[in-house]
């Protein structure tokens, strides 16, 4: 498998290298003095590292994402299982879910500051909101598309309600739950940066806004963006490793 993947992974590196080259060339050709070159950005990251700020900002953002996201996952999967399984719960909750879902988490920033102040709680709440809905939707769809014959078989063998959830509904919906979790984590990471741009003094979002405000340090602005991208990639590959679990191979394997 790895041998087959190696060339395509190399291709991914080539595409990134082309992107960086275009970035560099356009600075060279336009003669821009404000926009940083890739090399300046690397120097910026090294500088942040030396000052101990790199770790501080990354840790602050990851901390907020971890709490907001895990809380959302817990509640979203719970609610999604109930909505997917019980028609009444679905009818009762779906309208509200579909109403809240299209409201951008950014729109909640004023309310969130009003309710939770300018500490960690506010971005955690926004991340919670952002990642909650994709995971609810994924879980509901996962439960609803479990084939009837599996539910009938479970009924036939007299599985109790708990066993039914533990051994049939949850694993049957798991592939789509994982997809929802992947999307949820992506959105969570998207939102933490936006949330940190408002009235907070740590995190990658703060780094970006602060670097611009405090002396137009565009090298650090772009450094923040690059770090966000790299961490996003790492988080997604972490989630994708869930798709390699034996329990979901019936859906992803083959």
């Amino acid at each position: 498998m790895d041998a087959d993947l190696l060339p395509s992974k190399l291709n991914a590196l080539v595409v990134i290298a082309v992107g960086i080259t275009i970035w560099w060339l356009s600075i060279f050709l336009s003669g821009s003095h404000i926009f940083p070159t890739p090399w300046h950005v690397i120097l910026g990251i090294v500088e942040l590292g030396k000052q101990g700020l790199l770790l501080k900002h990354v840790a602050a953002s990851l901390y907020r994402v971890t709490y907001g996201y895990l809380l959302a996952a817990l509640l979203a999967i719970g609610l999604g299982l109930l909505m997917g399984r019980f028609r009444r719960v679905y009818v009762a909750c779906n309208a509200l879910v579909q109403m809240l879902r299209p409201i951008s988490p950014i729109a909640w920033i004023p309310l969130s500051i009003l309710w939770f102040g300018v500490g960690d709680l506010s971005p955690i709440f926004l991340i919670f909101l952002a990642s909650f809905f994709p995971m609810v939707v994924g879980t509901v769809a996962g439960v609803m598309t479990i084939e009837r014959r599996y539910l009938w078989a479970a009924e036939n063998f007299g599985l109790g309600r708990l066993a039914l959830f533990r051994y049939v509904i949850l694993p049957g919906a798991l592939p789509q739950i994982i997809t929802g979790m992947r999307i949820g984590l992506g959105v969570a990471w998207l939102v933490v940066v936006a949330a940190e741009m408002v009235a907070i003094n740590s995190g990658l979002g703060y780094l970006i806004i602060d670097s611009r405000n405090a002396g137009n340090r565009y090298d650090l602005v772009v450094a923040g963006m690059v770090l966000i991208g790299i961490i996003g990639l790492l988080l997604d590959s972490l989630m994708r490793s869930l798709e390699r679990l034996d329990e979901v191979q019936w859906r992803y394997g083959r």
Partner: peptide, 29 residues
């Protein structure tokens, strides 16, 4: 449906997320 009458489905209903062994023991809970 009752446990005393077991249905074997046309397209099969062995749970694909459980191993063979787990499928067997689940119905004997």
């Amino acid at each position: 449906p009752r446990r005393t009458g077991v249905f074997v489905f046309q397209r099969g209903a062995v749970f694909p997320w459980l191993t063979v062994q787990q499928n067997m023991t689940l119905v004997l809970r």
